[in-house]
């Protein structure tokens, strides 16, 4: 028994045990990727030509990006809902449903975050 323990202790001292953690599978979501690519394409082409037209902060395309990356398909619905709310009359609900914030480059905008529509 003692001999066995000595051999075991020697074995434990001389060998290093490596615990191999299974790699986390990073899920590649095609739907999210396609939507994000579409939004980026819009931001780099049409949005640059339009200038600052959105009344909200973050702007509708950034809102859509955040919503889709956080909530997936539900985020698409949130983004569409946001597009329907993005019009000049949104200022009527300033400080009621949307707090007014001063942005760095875009002046005063209505704050509206995806988390509020979860």
């Amino acid at each position: 028994m003692v001999a066995q323990l000595i051999i075991l202790s020697l074995f434990l001292n001389t060998t290093q045990i490596y615990i191999v953690k299974p790699k986390k599978e990073t899920q590649f979501r095609e739907d999210k990727f396609i939507i994000n690519m579409g939004i980026k394409l819009y931001q780099n082409t049409i949005s640059k030509q339009q200038g600052e037209v959105c009344v909200f902060e973050p702007s509708c395309s950034h809102f859509a990006q955040q919503a889709v990356s956080k909530y997936g398909l539900k985020g698409v619905l949130m983004a569409i809902d946001r597009l329907e709310r993005c019009n000049g009359t949104a200022w009527r609900y300033a400080n009621r449903y949307y707090p007014v914030v001063e942005t760095r480059n875009r002046g005063y905008k209505l704050n509206d975050l995806p988390e509020w529509y979860e």
Partner: peptide
């Protein structure tokens, strides 16, 4: 159809 669904959620 997408606008309609977004409107329901909204």
């Amino acid at each position: 159809a997408l606008l309609y669904m977004g409107n329901l959620y909204g």
